[in-house]
Design a protein around this nucleic acid. Sequence first.
RNA 1: GCGCUCGUAGCUCAGCUGGAUAGAGUGUCGGCCUCCGAAGCCGAAUGUCGGGUGUUCGAAUCACCUCGAGCGCACCA
Length: 582
Amino acid sequence: MKDQLQHLLTKCIQDLISKGTLNEMPSKIRIDHTKDNSHGDYATNIALMLSSQAKMSPLELAQIIIDQLEHRSFLKKVEIAGPGFINFFISQESSISIINEIIDQASSYGKSDIGQGKKVLLEYVSANPTGPLHVGHGRGAAYGATVSNLLRNAGFIVDNEYYVNDAGRQMDILTVSIFLRYLSFCGEKLRFPDNGYQGQYINDIAQVIYDTSGKEFHLKSDLIFKNVCKDGAEGGDKEKHIDQLIEKAKSKLGGGFKAVFKVGIESILSGIKNDLAEFGVVFEKWFSEQSLIDNGLSESCISKLKNSKNLYEKDGALWFKTTNYGDEKDRVVVRDNGNHTYFASDIAYHLDKLERGYDKIINVWGADHHGYIPRVKASIEALGHSSNKLEVLLVQFANLYRGGSKVQMSTRSGSFVTLEDLRAEVGNDAARFFYILRKSEQHMDFDLDLAKSKTNENPVYYIQYAHARICSVFRQAVEKEIELNVDQANLSLLIEQTEKDILRELSRFKSVLESSAIQYEPHQLAYYLRDLSTHFHSYYNACKFIVDDKSLTLARLSLISATQQVLKNGLSILGVGAPESM
RNA sequence: GCGCUCGUAGCUCAGCUGGAUAGAGUGUCGGCCUCCGAAGCCGAAUGUCGGGUGUUCGAAUCACCUCGAGCGCACCA
């Protein structure tokens, strides 16, 4: 319907240009769903936009546009309002046709091809595999998965990817943490380093190693701790302390160090995978950072940068002149100790992504990484690609509150609430919905007590209830041996205000989906579904659906069936269930 | 200090590519179940859109300034 209006208006403006009333086509002709139904169904501000160009008042121009507009049967009335808006009133015959359209297309209603099959790589979560996912990661997971659904629904081809940071110092710290806990199981007395990972899950992994391998990796703790400098809490340097422990463990354990690491990371990763899968978040690819080092891609990237004269040496380290590409300062890619930085791997990773042939690469990052964007874009440019292909979506942290005070989230100290705990307490549906309800760049206050105790505060139940209620009505209909057949329904009987309101709302669904997808804003869909539910609940209270008049009954059942379908399709994109009863 | 994000009703937030009287949930107050599910509906009250200046026929929306909050400015990842 909106498309038809768009066509009609475009042609109208073209005609006026050829008549000489107007000079040029505006960049966009806006047609909006009206907020207020006294303004009709759709409105355009085109006369206001073009009045200066036409050198006449908006009201005059609006009248000329209306006169030029071809008459179409779907338009009941066209009028000028306010300062020069043109309001379109759609005929009833046309507005009820959406019911048939929805019921015919069923679960595919709402799909579009605005993506034209363009290939998108969507990377999100990518939390360091140093422990279980916590509620902070949940927001990125829910957001990324929903954006993925929205894009797919809009005709994009989307691959979801998780970048696994399985290389570097963090992994060594993880390994040594597990190893020291393991030594405790072997009966060694030792002081656990301040900088080690302290969570219970570390003990669990150590326990598994002890249970399966016995004392295979057992070393006297003296052997590890001898000559190691003092830890932070003992008045020493906690960073040096743990680095020396790592070195000792590596040299004394030999291949055993890698074996412990392998058990550790596999255990943590499989935990993360399960957690996400249960949350309805599925990745096509888990991309290993270590693989970039193993297959030499990281190294070859550095050579490429060297050849393009973008690298220089300073203080024994190798620097990338990212300032050439708009970054605020240059960045180290190879440290003075010869190790590649995280950034070096990331350059290789992004190059790899680009060379896999995607039209668009989207990274969902925590907002604390915003300063990192310029240097990644710099590396893309330096390697001869267009940085426009990369889009970074920032997701703000969720601040957690418990008992009115902020909860500190630290994987290192183990003081965090896991995503798994949250899901267990509030359920997947409520968690998925709650996470995407706020605009991603909005700071979010997540009150755990509220989320856990008064889950009805979450509007997801309101929407699900609307769906369940409709299902319940249909159960009643079956009992009364009424079978819904839209072809037999006389939809022109739908004349109540609440019915018109629902029809208006249903007609918005497609544009909401389109807008949510293009702007990467799932919350738009969430708000829409709540509004649709509100109209349904009002309708439910205002009118009885199953009445003596058979054809009215069929008409009303058709309308709520279409509503049910849209609720279901919308919820499915949000990764939320549409229960038949609750 | 520089940069990014944000500041809208008591609270949590929509609205921001300029448009018609600034919205919702929650909370407060008052109504609605012998009738398809009351996890619901109907009604009332509540705002200097942080503050200021500018651009415009028109600003919560754009520009500049200012105040306040969060985050970032590593040879960490």
